[in-house]
Amino acid sequence: MTTVELVYYKYKPLKNGELPLKIRITKDRKIRYVNLGVSTKPEHWDFSKNQPKSNCPNREQLERLIANKIGEVKAQIVELKADRKEFTATSLVQKINNRDKSVSVRELFQEHLTYLAEMKRTGYMLSIKQTFNSLSAFSSSLDIPFSDIDLAWLRRYETWLRKQGKSENTIGIRFRNLRMIYNLAIEKGVVKKEYYPFSSYKVSKLHKATAKRAIPKEAIRAIIHYPVKDKDFYTRLAVSLFSFSYFMGGINFVDMAYLSSKNIVGGRLIYTRRKTGKLINLPLSSEALSALEAWKHTGSNYLFPILSSVHKTEQMRLNRLHKVITKANNALKQLGEHLQLPVKLTTYVARHSFATVLKREGVSTSIICESLGHSSEKVTQIYLDSFENTQIDEAMKHLL
């Protein structure tokens, strides 16, 4: 028989006059204690009911902590009995204390950020970092176990984000990243599946379909042939990046930034997507080569003048990418306004337009999925990987 009960430990008062709260475990007449790490003053404690009085500071937090810890101890006992494992009051307390020292939310986030940095997944790392910073601003501390993130906690975080004026899609990204880290915690054995809060909290409700960002061929031609002055570096670069992305399968900005002469083999562009790790193999069209021509004699090994040998560290490269994409998109925005386009022009519009133009030309969705880069980019890549180069080559003739 094992008993678990709350004890207001009045035998060893703390220096501030408060008394500690402990969980008393009794088994085979042996008594051991689990320290809750909190204390309160005697005048705030109802000894008859063995609970905090209504005037006790942080009463709700105390009651929640007490209930969670007692529940954790009882669950541990049930688990040991179910597995038919022998235990004593001492071994039970040791097991519980060791669990308290498990990886915290903050520690797992930082561990994963380090992993992403090592894998050079800078874009995704930035997204996770933004979520981590957001959670840090919301919570007084992320040095908490994952079991503390329950349904009520998630709802409070959502409310907080809305008060910050965040958009629906930004909130969705924050929650998808948090859900990913929680799934990682389950995978690593940091937290049990039974605590998983996303079974009740549906992240899918936070998705808001974005406006179509594809533009017609006429607008694409106007951008590609836009007369740019030589001294306007960022507008020239922006037009080149837009054109190259459109003609080369909607390649995104980061992947373009890292392209070098080694990625051109036998008249084809071959590279690995930094985001998904998928190998891309596409024919280099004359239009794509024209977009590269202006930057042929820059003296750099990179195809575009975005990165150089000066950017030695990952952080330096990340800073440079952020600077260039901001300036390039600002230039495209102004160009789009001058052309009176119905959408805000960015490098991403080239990617979306690539998929949509082919779709409208009747190209099979199994070759170029209309949702390229949207709801399921992995599915799109799986479709593309299953076709011969000749089929993709033929499909790309429809671009202009």
Rank of each mutant, 00 (worst) to 15 (best):
E361I: 00
N169K: 11
M256D: 11
W153P: 12
T159D: 10
V343A: 04
L384T: 04
I25S: 08
Q130I: 08
T390I: 01
Y302D: 12
H297R: 13
K212Q: 13
E361P: 00
F304M: 11
F109V: 13
W45C: 12
L6V: 13
P13V: 15
R155P: 01
T40A: 14
L142T: 11
W160L: 11
D232P: 03
Y246D: 10
S375M: 01
F354L: 06
K27G: 05
E187I: 06
M125V: 03
K22A: 13
S308N: 09
P57S: 14
S371H: 01
V191S: 08
K120W: 04
F47K: 15
G71Y: 13
M119E: 10
M1S: 14
M256F: 07
N330D: 08
L307E: 09
L237F: 12
I186M: 07
I23H: 09
N68K: 08
A395G: 02
N169E: 13
P305D: 07
Y201S: 13
S261A: 12
S139T: 05
I215W: 01
V254C: 07
Y246P: 07
K262C: 08
V191Y: 02
D393Y: 00
I66L: 09
T3V: 03
K202D: 15
S300M: 15
V103I: 12
I181L: 15
N389W: 01
R29F: 12
S364M: 00
G123M: 10
S309F: 08
K53T: 15
S167V: 10
E370C: 01
A238S: 09
P13S: 14
I70N: 07
L284M: 03
S167F: 04
S243I: 03
N330T: 02
Q61W: 07
N330L: 02
T313V: 10
D46V: 13
S139A: 15
Q334T: 09
I306K: 05
K327L: 07
V239C: 05
A211I: 11
F242G: 07
Q334S: 12
L282P: 06
F132I: 05
N263F: 11
K27L: 11
R176N: 12
R179T: 12
N177F: 02
S104K: 14
K323M: 06
Y9T: 06
H398A: 00
F354W: 09
K205P: 03
K12M: 11
V228K: 07
Y348T: 02
I186R: 04
D46W: 10
F233M: 12
H297C: 08
L206G: 09
F138S: 09
L237V: 14
H322Y: 01
Q391W: 02
N389K: 05
K27E: 11
L142C: 15
A75F: 01
Q164M: 04
I251G: 09
T114H: 06
V93L: 02
A328M: 03
S300G: 14
N183M: 01
L62A: 05
L345I: 04
V363T: 06
Y258R: 07
F387C: 01
Q391K: 05
R360K: 06
A328G: 03
E187K: 15
I149Q: 09
E60Q: 13
A211T: 12
A328R: 02
T159N: 10
L269G: 06
S375P: 00
M316I: 07
H338S: 14
D232S: 10
